[in-house]
Simulated assay, not measured.
Amino acid sequence: MVAVSDTAAKLRLALADHVGSPGWRQALEAVPRELFLGDAVYRADESRGDRWIPVRRAEVGVDEWLSLAYTDATWVTQIDGVMAEDATGVMVGQPSSSSTFPSLVVRMLEAAQISEGETVLEIGTGTGYSTSLMCQRLGQEAVTSIEYDQEVAARARKAITEAGYVPTLVVGDGLLGYGEDAEYDRLIATCSVRTIPWAWMWQVREGGTITAPMRGWMGGVAFAHLTLADDGSASGRFLKDDLYFMTARSHLPPPRPPVTTGFGDARRSRIDPSILRDDDTALWVAQLAAPQVQCSWGEDKTILLDVSTGSRADTTPDPAGGWTVHQHGPIKLWDEAEKALLVWEEAGRPHQSGFGLTVTRDRQYVWLGDPDGPSWDLPA
């Protein structure tokens, strides 16, 4: 009979082969991912997107659990604050913590250009798997990780300790960073943010980097990689990967009430509204122009809503051809989004990597092409 440890080692080797990262291969082969899934995970109910079925290690058996752990897949570990091992049955809700695809974790670490001899601040410990990969490669003394959710943090600490690592683990608001061990060579966020928190800026050394997925209220995403300058600012182009994680809880949009459509000032739209649903970069660009807006779609409608001001816009097909937009409230939401999209189209519709981000004490702004090109301020 093959020992469990031998089986797990073979599966780790296969996972490392699949991920194909020379720099992180040894860590992938060494870190036992099954420890970081705890005693249960959630599996999505294919019949309904917000239903989650607990899968328990004790019920599926060792072989299936190891196979599950070493599949290159994301396993949800918490739904709306309820850990999978605490679920009494099928859960309805939204994921609030997970063990992300190992290949995606490694892409994040590679994008941050982390290497031996550097110190790292990780925002979002999660299950602790990425934390342990860094401990294995860099040494545990080089890794500091902070987690907001106390229960998630306790679970991660247990798994990281069982795996044999003792990094600096902090329970707190990752958006404030952790100044006690600053300055860091690299800061990486394993949660998506709407803007770059200023506290991160002074905790990274000159020439160091901040690597963070960004996601706004429309759902547009971009992957930021910034280098700190000697004047305390940071700047860099977005990366080619459209990589993102769960959004930091304080950066989530407010609840969206039902919206009445079809009233307000009417005009013809100069763009096809379906571009916001069909093109990820277009959604990102529209979001730059209207960062306070949430977007939704009906059968033949695109709806924009600003909860804070009550401004709204909706588009419908015009029987004569094209689209009619109705706008109501103090801000003409479609006007703002449309203007930005026309600038983007004139520039040749570049991917997010054709844009960059500059962060100073006074403002954060996204620019197209180069820092002197068209730009849009991110929310304060």
Rank of each mutant, 00 (worst) to 15 (best):
S115A: 09
I79F: 08
Y42V: 08
S353E: 08
M134P: 07
Y129F: 09
V152Y: 04
G89V: 09
L243R: 05
V204T: 05
L13E: 15
P258W: 10
P32L: 07
V4E: 14
D185L: 01
H251A: 06
I196P: 01
V259N: 01
E336C: 05
S235M: 12
W200F: 11
D39I: 05
M83N: 13
G174T: 06
P374H: 03
L333R: 01
T74I: 00
I331D: 02
D300R: 14
D362V: 09
P95M: 04
S250Q: 15
F245I: 08
A112P: 00
E85P: 02
R270N: 15
G128R: 03
M83G: 13
S145D: 07
L187G: 00
D86T: 10
F245L: 06
P273C: 03
A266C: 06
K332T: 13
G369P: 11
V60Q: 06
T74R: 00
H351R: 14
L35P: 00
L133D: 02
Q78N: 14
R48V: 12
L35M: 07
W52F: 13
V120A: 01
E345M: 13
E85G: 01
D6G: 10
F238L: 01
R349H: 11
R363F: 12
P197N: 01
S5E: 15
G49F: 14
P22F: 08
T168A: 06
H351G: 08
S250G: 11
V92Q: 15
R215C: 09
W52Y: 14
K339E: 11
M91N: 09
F263V: 10
T144F: 00
Y70P: 01
A14G: 13
S269T: 13
R25Y: 08
L288Q: 09
W284N: 00
T7W: 03
M214N: 06
L341Y: 02
E183Q: 12
G310D: 03
A9S: 15
D39K: 12
T260D: 14
P102Y: 03
G264L: 05
K10E: 14
Y129D: 03
W202K: 11
R268T: 14
P317V: 15
L104Y: 08
A30N: 10
Y42T: 11
V76I: 14
D241F: 05
G208P: 04
V2N: 13
W334K: 04
T100S: 15
L378W: 10
P32S: 09
Y244D: 06
L243C: 01
G172R: 11
R51G: 00
R43Q: 14
V2R: 12
G126K: 08
T161R: 11
R205T: 04
R363A: 15
L357M: 08
A3H: 13
P319G: 06
S274K: 12
D314G: 06
P350H: 07
